[in-house]
Amino acid sequence: MTANRRQNFRPEEDEDAPLVERTLGGDQQAYEQLVRKHEQRVFRTAIAILGELADAEEAMQEAFLKAYQNLPTFRRDARFTTWLTRIAVNESLQILRRRRDAASLDDLEAPLQDLRPSRVEEWYANPERRYATAELKRIVEEAIRALPPAYRVVFLLRDVEELSTEETAEALGLSIPATKSRVLRARLMVREALAAHFEKPPTLRSRLRRATSMVRNMMAMAFERPAGRLGGR
């Protein structure tokens, strides 16, 4: 899959290519521009893996120094940001290894969580407006912080930094299926955490509705009949 992507990726698609070239030509200001442009992503990667601010700061500094020193070895078969994120992951893991002895992201893997959602009440309309900006941010960060680190980093790259599934997989050295499965679990866990703040209190009607749809589902599965016949609507 990776090989495939590499064939598809064209270096001219990388908007950072000119800054990379100038940096290689000895222009330190060009590198500073790259740093400013990408420090947010590198920070999120590091804080996701390490959790502690001081550790993340160290990882971030090491990552940007390493990237600068290793830039001559950067083969343009991936985006600069993907390559840089991968360095940030490795630096973070190295610090983590020093702190706790986890060798890789796989060692950070939490046992598979039950996917089945437990909070299934509707949410208020535009629930984010019920909170002040700072408070909302605290709630969201808390929800992400509560994820196991292996899910946290996948979630931040995919859904906050908005990398594609393929780029997330490549940056983390994961397979596409493993990435997809972690993205899904992370999304559901964050949803569950936010639901505690955003959902409406249950009503008799919502309970009835759920019971009805559960029965309908069981029947659909048991008889494998088209759903249209079961609904009676």
């Binding site: 947010q40 920070f43 999120r44 804080i47 984010e128 909302l136 941010k137 969201v140 960060e141």
Partner: peptide, 10 residues
């Protein structure tokens, strides 16, 4: 909501 509130800014 998560994307809009930009969590974990540097």
């Amino acid at each position: 909501i998560v994307a809009d509130c930009e969590p974990f800014e540097v």
